[in-house]
């Protein structure tokens, strides 16, 4: 699962380039340019993928950190 999440992050970075909507002026819901709507969806997708990362890739060993002795 760890690898799946990291692959998803790379996929997000690829999807972010969004060459396919570059010249389109289509309005989603009649008011939002598709280029803006698509990238708002990328932001939501980023939230979902990062949520998965906290579920499946979280470094639990970090919790065991000790306070400095000095």
């Amino acid at each position: 699962m760890n690898y799946v999440v990291w692959i998803l992050i790379v996929v997000l970075l690829v999807l972010h380039q969004d060459n396919w909507n570059w010249d389109s002026d289509y309005l989603v819901f009649g008011f939002m340019p598709i280029g803006l709507f698509y990238h708002a969806c990328i932001s939501i997708a980023a939230g979902v993928v990062w949520f998965m990362s906290t579920k499946f890739c979280w470094p639990d060993e970090m919790e065991a950190t000790e306070e400095p002795t000095t």
Partner: peptide
Amino acid sequence: IGVYGMLASSSGIIHSLCFFVIGVK
């Protein structure tokens, strides 16, 4: 509208990456 992709959605991915990969460690 391209500024959103250039400045905002990119930051949404990369900032969290920095918090996770650099910040926690």
